[in-house]
Amino acid sequence: MSAADLPAVPDALAAAGSRRAGGGGRGVLWWAAATALGVLALVAFPGLLAPGDPYSLEVSNRFASPGSANLFGTDDAGRDILSRVIHGARYSLWSSILIVTFAAVVGTVYGALAAWYGGILDRLLMRTVDVFLAFPYLVFAMAVAASLGRGLTSTMVALCLLWWPSYARMVRGQVKSILNDYHIRAAVTLGASRGQILRWHVIPHTYNQLLVRFTLDIGNALVALTGLAFLGLGATPPLPEWGRMVADSKQFALTAWWYGVFPGVVIFLTVLNFVLLGEALRKRVEL
């Protein structure tokens, strides 16, 4: 119950006080565009960016330390870690984006409907959301992912199931307050239909906050997804999923530090990028 009324984690993070970060202006938009472009390039054309084949085994070259031949070194099967990390974006990063997209779309529709119809339906729908929000997400995701069988898809299904309720709650709150605005009354007076009002006069006003939340959440979903993959619930070998790579490196931690360090650095920097970008977008939206 109390969980539902709280500032979400990203809100608090953004409140971490970036007086300067972003600071409005055009910079944020360029940053967002660069991020989107980077993601697109990594996901669509990893082969062009990666120096080598992420799957080719070269046992004679196992545990090569980072150098000019293998910038991030090689793993226990002699595979180039840099190439694997680049190809891994398709699994780790893209899956996170899909999860959050699903959550945002389903949550928006659900929340908007609850706010629009109000009354018993609203209470029923939001009570359901509260139940979902009351689950401890990691344990629950583990249970769902383990039951559906191992694999990236079942982990994604598990996270999708758990992610949408927070969007439903956020959008419902927004729609409720927007519905009280004068421009809605004007539209009603002018005879606009329910669907028209919702589609053209309500939902567009939620986009700004949705975008901020969406950006921040990609980072959160990446942490969750790679965390579950680290526990063995996620992409199966030989897929170069980032969390899985860190997990596989565990037994070689003392002989080949680069094996786990580089995929971890990439996860960290990616999450950091989305969190800071989300923060900067919020700054701009609130101006």
Binding site: V9, G227, V246, S249, W257, G260, F268, V271
Partner: peptide, 21 residues
């Protein structure tokens, strides 16, 4: 500020592994 932003963005399993190494 660095601690607040980096600490929240860093994956737990990786921090644990780094500390262990």
């Amino acid at each position: 500020r660095v601690v607040a932003v980096a600490g929240a963005a860093v994956p737990v399993f990786w921090v644990g592994l780094l500390l262990q190494i």
